[in-house]
Amino acid sequence: MFDRRPSPERPGPGQESVWDYPRPPRAERMHRRAVLRHAGAVVAESDDLVRVLETSHPPTYYVPRTAFTDGMLVPVEPGGRSSAKPTGWGRHSTFCEWKGVASYVDVTVPGAEPLRAVGWWYPEPDRRYPELTDRVAVYVAPFDEITLDGEVVRPQPGGFYGGWVTDEVVGPFKGGPGSMGW
């Protein structure tokens, strides 16, 4: 059974409605500053981002793999185990009908519990999304803090999707209870 599409919130000045985003999704380069922090360490920071916009979802931001602190990205092996070796990047995978096969990564910060399967990337993104090559997206909730241009990012509801909620986007957002059929 599909849930009824909700009434979109009206965007204010400087805001976007996620209901105006396209399907299939659009990827676009952004020159904004993202900083990912966990356990007292900067895990990644970059102003070279790609955001993916899809109807009913807050933007998902992709950070260059090279922006991550050396040794903090660890590929997830089949069965959810991590490999300390950076070869074969992420053999645990899922499939997106638009972007292709995604591989997952853990984030490891010395002295802290690893953040398991907290990020994903497309080793060979669909030809429609070349901007995603060598970029990693992450779930917001497990990190101590992620900021975008200094604003603290909030996680997309639910836990399945990896959108970054900021004051510049309005929903309602897919992911929470009752949103399965949107």
Rank of each mutant, 00 (worst) to 15 (best):
W19S: 07
L53G: 09
V74T: 11
G88W: 08
G88Q: 10
G79P: 00
R23W: 11
V101Q: 14
P125G: 06
Y21C: 06
G111K: 12
P58A: 11
V50H: 03
R81M: 13
S83E: 01
F68A: 09
A44N: 03
A102L: 07
D126I: 08
G14E: 04
V35D: 05
L115K: 10
P64G: 05
A44E: 07
V105P: 01
G14C: 11
A67H: 05
K85G: 13
A112S: 14
W121S: 13
S83T: 13
S83G: 07
K99C: 14
V35Y: 10
E28P: 00
E45H: 11
Y104R: 00
Y104N: 02
D106I: 00
E45T: 07
C96E: 07
M72Y: 15
D126P: 00
D106M: 01
R23L: 15
P86M: 01
G111S: 06
V42M: 08
P64W: 01
W121I: 05
P110R: 09
G90Y: 06
T94H: 11
A41C: 10
A117Y: 01
V74A: 12
E97K: 14
G111H: 03
S46C: 01
S93W: 12
E45N: 03
P75L: 05
G79V: 06
M72H: 10
E124T: 15
W121K: 11
T60P: 06
S7F: 09
A44H: 02
R91L: 12
W98T: 02
R116L: 09
C96H: 07
H31K: 13
A41Y: 05
R26Q: 14
T94Y: 08
V43I: 12
P114F: 01
D106L: 07
R81C: 09
R26S: 10
S7D: 15
Y61C: 01
V76S: 11
E124H: 14
E97A: 14
L36P: 09
V18F: 02
R10F: 00
A39M: 01
S46D: 02
W98A: 09
W89C: 13
Y21A: 04
P59H: 02
D106Y: 01
P58N: 03
Y61I: 04
H38M: 02
P8R: 03
R32V: 05
F95Y: 13
V52Y: 06
V101H: 12
R26Y: 10
A84Q: 11
V109S: 02
M72C: 14
A84I: 07
K85T: 13
C96K: 12
